[in-house]
Design a protein around this nucleic acid. Structure first.
Length: 423
RNA sequence: GCCCCUGUCGUCUAGCUAGGUCUAGGACAUCGCCCUUUCAAGGCGGCAACACGGGUUCAAAUCCCGUCGGGGGCGCCA
């Protein structure tokens, strides 16, 4: 059985690149019916914070990941590392330099790593200097604690970022000195920003949390992230984690760095939003309403609004700017909407329409539309010439859901009030 | 400076392991048309790539070499 791990360092938020690493490890474990473990690399006590760890775990769960054992903390295992290091000193493989312990790297050797993603990679020990095992303050150096713990946890496969490639020969040397079998390694290319530079804030966010706040669905983010470096095949781009786990094949992972494309993420998110039932979208929408200090008149009302708009938004944050008028009278007016009411003829049409609407007892979309088209015909103008001003008066927007459905939802009183004040 | 990874449309990629079926396929983005009260959604269509230079071969996106480009590493950070 295979065992893999994700080893976050609790010194900050969960980076989307790290999230992708975690995702692929999870995918591999689930596909192989193996185990997925978490190890917390909190050896730097000054920078590590329990709060960060909790956030990271929360974000991993949010993405849909689960793990098979309680996370192991490296800060609990300092004695072990020191013991192992002392053992290497006793065996003559390491030496003390003050309080620190250094590993002696034998020159003139070639280290060959059969990488699961890149294939064979060779290194020369001449390029590697002696390695710190234990620092002067007694804490373990990264590569050493990493090896000790991966061995302790029974890790069989290490899937990590390309930035760890140069750590690999050092770690291989440690396994050898410890007389322990080394796991298989697989290094996946890093994600870059749209301009090819390191992914940063200006590319649209680096933290998983930021995407959550932007209004992305975890399923969409996870889906997008696994598409960066792995191709499930045509017709299979939109898939759940479970489907991905079933189809996953580490041999088909790409060995080329990929650029993070927010456009495609948005498209995917839009796909998820539009395919989901409106009621499933309610919690996220309610959050946005609450943040703006708004409330919906009723659950049923909100549900209908969402049904009307879920096909038109790519993220949840796009909802309110488009649909605020359903929840407040002081809604946002687009400049183009104001322009639609600027002409005297437009307001004249609006007044005539308002009068006809007032005298109608029925307020169904069909009747409103009939009234609208009749008036247009009577005045010998195109229906659009009337519809646009009405939309503007009622919503302050030039775009949105079908006007007659909007009006029915808003209700007779509210619509008439807005029409009168706009005319 | 040294070491390592890598180079197919703007982006993600299929194809490369076993060279011909590739006038290089799909998706996102973009452009146009249809639908239509608008915006979406949907349908149809267009634009768009084998980094460059050598070599091997009857034949190269696919194999080999070099150049150039992108990225990572060389911490008592992780």
């Amino acid at each position: 059985m295979i065992t893999v791990r994700f080893a976050p360092s609790p010194t900050g938020y969960l980076h989307v690149g790290s999230a992708r690493t975690a995702l692929f490890n999870w995918l591999y474990a689930r596909h192989e019916k193996g185990r997925f473990l978490l190890r917390v690399e909190d050896t730097d006590r000054k920078r590590s914070d329990k709060k960060f760890l909790e956030e990271i775990l929360r974000d991993l769960r949010w993405l849909g990941l689960d793990w098979d054992a309680e996370p192991v903390l490296q800060s609990d295992r300092f004695d072990i590392y020191r013991q192992k290091a002392a053992g290497l000193v006793a065996a003559g493989r390491a030496y003390r330099d003050g309080e620190a312990v250094l590993f002696r790297v034998e020159p003139g050797r070639t280290i060959v790593v059969e990488d699961m993603i890149h294939g064979r990679i060779t290194f020369q020990t001449d390029d590697i200097k002696d390695q710190v095992l234990v620092k002067s303050d007694g804490s373990p150096a990264y590569n050493f604690s990493c090896v000790v713990d991966d061995d302790f946890l029974g890790i069989t496969h290490i899937l990590r970022g390309d930035d760890h490639i140069s750590n690999t020969p050092k770690q291989v040397l440690f396994y050898e000195a410890l007389d322990r079998p080394a796991p298989r390694f697989g290094h996946m290319p890093l994600i870059m920003g749209a301009d090819g530079a390191k992914l940063s804030k200006r590319h649209g966010g680096v933290a998983v949390e930021e995407y959550k706040q932007e209004g992305f669905l975890p399923e969409a983010l996870a889906n997008y992230l696994i598409l960066l470096g792995w191709y499930p095949g045509q017709e299979h781009e939109v898939l759940t984690l479970e489907e991905a786990a079933r189809m996953f094949d580490i041999k088909s992972m790409n060995d080329v760095q990929a650029k993070f494309d927010v456009q495609k993420l948005k498209w995917l998110n839009g796909e998820y939003i539009m395919r989901r039932s409106a009621s499933a979208l309610l919690p996220a929408i309610k959050e946005r309403l609450a943040a703006a200090g708004l409330t919906a008149p009723s659950e049923g009302y909100l549900l209908k609004v969402v049904e009307l708009y879920q096909v038109r938004i790519k993220t949840f944050n796009e909802f309110l700017p488009l649909a605020d008028f359903f929840f407040r009278d002081d809604f946002l007016w687009e400049e183009e909407a104001k322009a639609a009411l600027a002409k005297d003829e437009s307001r004249e049409l609006l007044r005539l329409f308002t009068a006809r609407l007032e005298s109608s007892g029925d307020f169904s979309p069909e009747v409103i539309e009939k009234l609208c088209r009749e008036l247009a015909a009577d005045r010998k103008v195109k229906a659009a010439a009337l519809i646009h001003p009405i939309r503007a008066a009622v919503s302050g927007k030039t775009r949105g859901a079908g006007l007659f459905e909007i009006m029915e939802l808003l209700g007779r009183e509210q619509v008439l009030r807005r029409l009168r004040s706009a005319a």
